[in-house]
């Protein structure tokens, strides 16, 4: 009778079956399971390499004119139209001044992606900061939201013209003709498109900050900055991701509209948006000239969208491990 009673099975300590995993490892493994996100990420890596490494493989100069080789159709048109004017020297054809389609696509992608990403990130940073601050700090809400209203109502064209008048020359002196324009375009696009993000983020923050988990965090003495970073921001990730995808598309298109106004890059500097805009009048005879940049923009935006979906799923602990 001296035997100790056998321990109840349920009270026994479980031995961990595997060493504990870090949070980011969990996020990564969840992200990897998201096939859309992986395809999206893969495409983004591909397109980035395409525009960065492309010029070293396909060495034709995108700005070089060749009046003898203009209006060449892409090589694939030979499949159904044996009489089409095709040339292996220009696999994606050439435009009305004989500039090579493939090298234009590469060079255009370089500038469009650079502008798109930079403007999108800047938009998100401004929009999220303003939105979080005005949603979280009651005193700042009024002034910041009236500022947002002001920016929403400013007419864009005069704003652009003012920006050009005052800043083109100094920026050109500091960064060169193309670099200066890049800074100007990115700033202008970001300054005119951060407002929806700010209002959406603020709306969500207004609701979130009254929730119990924020109260709990506050009651254990968490500092406001910490509440914002750890508790509020992860919960507004979803609208931010949507803004990011829509913002990328808007930035790439807006850039092309800017060059019409003389605010954009010099006219011999290709971008996807400009290629698309220039090709619209000729879309019946040369559909590839609208399709190639159009598809490139769409696929990039789609890829960012899927990537955003995957990121959100991976960062949400409730979906993780589902």
């Amino acid at each position: 009778m001296t035997d100790a009673p056998p321990p109840i099975q349920a009270l026994q300590d479980k031995v961990p079956s595997a060493p504990p995993r870090s949070q980011w490892l969990d996020v990564w493994s969840q992200f990897r399971k998201h096939s859309g996100a992986m395809v999206g990420a893969g495409f983004l890596v591909f397109i980035t390499l395409f525009v960065l490494v492309g010029p070293y493989i396909w060495t034709l100069d995108a700005q070089a004119l060749n009046m003898r080789a203009r209006d060449i159709r892409p090589i694939y048109t030979a499949l159904w139209d044996s009489g089409a004017k095709v040339d292996w020297a220009h696999p994606l054809g050439s435009d009305n001044l004989g500039r090579d389609g493939l090298s234009q696509l590469i060079a255009g992608g370089r500038s469009s992606l650079a502008v798109g990403w930079a403007a999108m990130v800047l938009t998100l940073v401004i929009g999220t900061t303003v939105g979080v601050l005005s949603g979280f700090v009651r005193k700042l809400d009024g002034p910041l939201m009236r500022l947002t209203d002001l920016f929403l109502s400013l007419p864009i064209l005069p704003l652009l013209l003012v920006a050009v008048t005052f800043f083109r020359q100094p920026l050109r002196a500091a960064f060169g003709p193309e670099g200066g324009m890049f800074v100007l375009i990115v700033t202008v696009v970001a300054l005119t498109s951060w407002m929806p993000t700010a209002r959406i983020v603020r709306g969500d923050i207004l609701a979130l900050k009254e929730r119990e988990f924020v109260l709990a965090a506050r009651s254990i003495g968490t500092r406001p900055l910490h509440i914002i970073l750890r508790h509020l921001l992860p919960n507004v990730l979803s609208p931010i991701m949507v803004s990011a995808t829509l913002g990328l598309a808007t930035a790439i298109i807006t850039e092309s509209a800017l060059s019409f106004l003389g605010v954009g890059f010099p006219s011999d500097f290709p971008t996807w948006g400009k290629m698309l805009a220039d090709a619209v009048p000729r879309m019946e005879d040369f559909p590839e000239r609208v399709l190639l940049p159009g598809v490139a923009i769409s696929l990039t935006v789609l890829a960012v969208n899927y990537l955003g979906d995957g990121l959100r799923d991976a960062l949400d602990p409730r979906t993780r491990g589902r």
Partner: peptide, 25 residues
């Protein structure tokens, strides 16, 4: 969902200065 995502994202990334003339043609 996939089809909706695909169509809406393409719809958004193609600007009206292209879709307008396309529909006219």
């Amino acid at each position: 969902d996939q089809a909706g995502t695909f169509i809406t994202m393409i719809g958004f990334s193609i600007p009206p200065f292209f879709t307008g003339p396309l529909l006219i043609v």
